[in-house]
Nucleic acid binder design. Structure first.
Length: 422
RNA sequence: GGAGAGAUGGCAGAGUGGUCGAUUGCGGCGGUCUUGAAAACCGUUGUACCGCAAGGUACCAGGGGUUCGAAUCCCUUUCUCUCCGCCA
């Protein structure tokens, strides 16, 4: 969430910048400013009353020690009223802070100045493109047909044992998954990311920390008996490692990478979007996460985008990078670059990565801070990106590399698969 | 799952109703000494909120209660450890 300081000190600017995200903040910002003023006034009077109470208690203690029972009893009667006042004030302060917090979590992050205006996906800017478009015959097969032809993925089996969106990978299909995971992790490690293996289920506090809760609750699978959530991305457990942590500036930037299975309910999806591997309830992804200083975070963002580009280049896929417009960006992001690869049989661009800088928005809720060289404690910036999500990469690889003699594996991946074609 | 013990500052570990935001040790930071380092010695060392400031307030796992006053007493939740059971 945004910090109160930012909101109260730059009210007009905040409202203006929120508009780019198509969020009308005029009214809510006004409420926040009012509640904050109320909160401060309450805090001041509450503190004064508490101070008086503390003094009085000390006095009573002293009187008892000196054996002046009557005077002590007399002083005691005064505390009753104070006690009542303190109770009232702190209840009011609590409810004010709660209301304030409830408002704050409904305000999205401010988009970076370089984020383009726009309503939706059609307004995203193509930042750059690369890779070679394959020349496929007209009867080229989409990946779900190829998966069946070569017996790589059994969607029906997944339906039988779980439900739609939980495919079973088999034979070279399964080995390709394993190869891609190792390929991505090895590349990340070589780029300086520390590999971690996090839990796939998290508690509610972690869900709140990265912002999945409370608003995206229905997108996560929930184990009600234990109140655990299946992670929709490794971002959740990995970023939460830094919840309530004060890092030293010298430790930054923190660079972590993690493979995990990801679980998403994808409520409301339908049609061609969910065909084959295009959208699943369970999929594999390697994630990269960075924690950085405000001064350096945009440099980190550029490094992350460039890093992801090396992956799609090595996989010899046609790709493009989109700079998302204000209307298409996520709630918590300040700036996002999407990577898409072209699946040549479907003739569609498929999103395979999303690289974002959250600035201090996520860190504020996480209470992830760092101590700078001059001993000041301030909020970190957090960033993350997919590097990469597997299913759509597999879809593009299968479709683009199909030949009459089988499906060719990109050279960089062959040491990982152990086979050159399917 | 059953029985018991526990949760205190970066770590270890005192503290069982007021003088405790908290003894002490280690670690960290600054200094003295030294060519430099170590050792020794001296000093310093949590977070948040309110306040122009002086200063004040809150925090001893979380929540509630008793009391003029709670790290300390009571209730409760969560977690950890030990033993037993089960088990990859």
């Amino acid at each position: 969430m945004l910090t109160l300081k930012v909101i109260t000190e730059n009210k007009e600017e905040v409202i203006r910048r929120l508009a780019k995200k198509r969020f009308n903040g005029a009214e809510i910002i006004e409420q926040v400013v009012e509640l904050d003023a109320k909160r401060r006034a309450l805090q001041t009077t509450l503190d004064a009353n508490s101070a008086e109470m503390n003094n009085l208690s000390k006095v009573i203690g002293d009187l008892f020690k000196q054996g002046k029972q009557a005077a002590a009893a007399d002083a005691k009667t005064k505390t009753a009223e104070l006690k009542e006042t303190i109770k009232t004030l702190s209840v009011e302060l609590d409810s004010t802070e709660k209301k304030l917090n409830e408002l704050l979590v409904t305000i999205p992050n401010l988009p970076h100045e370089s984020v383009p205006e726009g309503k939706g996906a059609e307004d995203n800017l193509v930042e750059r493109t690369g890779g070679m478009m394959p020349n496929l015959p007209e009867d080229a097969m989409p990946h779900w047909d190829l998966a069946k032809k070569y017996d790589l993925i059994d969607f029906e089996m997944g339906v039988k044992i779980t439900g739609a969106g939980f495919p079973v990978y088999k034979g070279k299909g399964a080995r390709l998954q394993r190869a891609l995971i190792n390929f991505f992790l090895d590349n990340a490690r070589e780029a300086g990311y520390l590999e971690v293996q996090p839990p796939y289920v998290v508690n509610a506090a972690s869900g709140y920390g990265t912002g999945q809760l409370p608003d995206k609750e229905d997108q996560m699978y929930h184990c009600q008996i234990d109140d655990f959530y299946l992670i929709p991305t490794a971002e959740v457990p990995v970023t939460n490692m830094y919840r309530d942590v004060i890092l030293q500036e010298s430790e930054l930037p923190v660079k972590n990478t993690a493979y995990s299975a990801c679980f998403r309910r994808e409520a409301g999806s339908y049609g061609k979007d969910v065909r084959g591997l295009n959208r699943l309830h369970q999929f594999d992804k390697v994630e990269i996460v960075r924690i950085d200083t405000p001064e350096h975070s945009y440099e980190s963002l550029t490094e992350m985008v460039n890093y992801v580009q090396t992956l799609v280049d090595k996989l010899e896929l046609p790709w493009r990078i989109l700079r998302l417009c204000g209307g298409d960006m996520s709630f918590t992001s300040a700036i996002t670059f999407d990577f898409e690869v072209f699946a040549a049989a479907q003739k569609r661009w498929l999103e395979v990565s999303s690289v974002s800088n959250f600035e201090s928005y996520q860190a504020n809720r996480l209470k992830c801070r760092f101590k700078s060289e001059d001993k000041k404690t301030q909020l970190c910036h957090t960033l993350n990106g997919s590097a990469l999500a597997l299913p759509r990469i597999v879809a593009a690889l299968l479709e683009n590399n199909q030949t009459p003699d089988g499906i060719l594996i990109p050279k960089a991946l062959v040491p990982y698969t152990g086979f050159e074609s399917i």
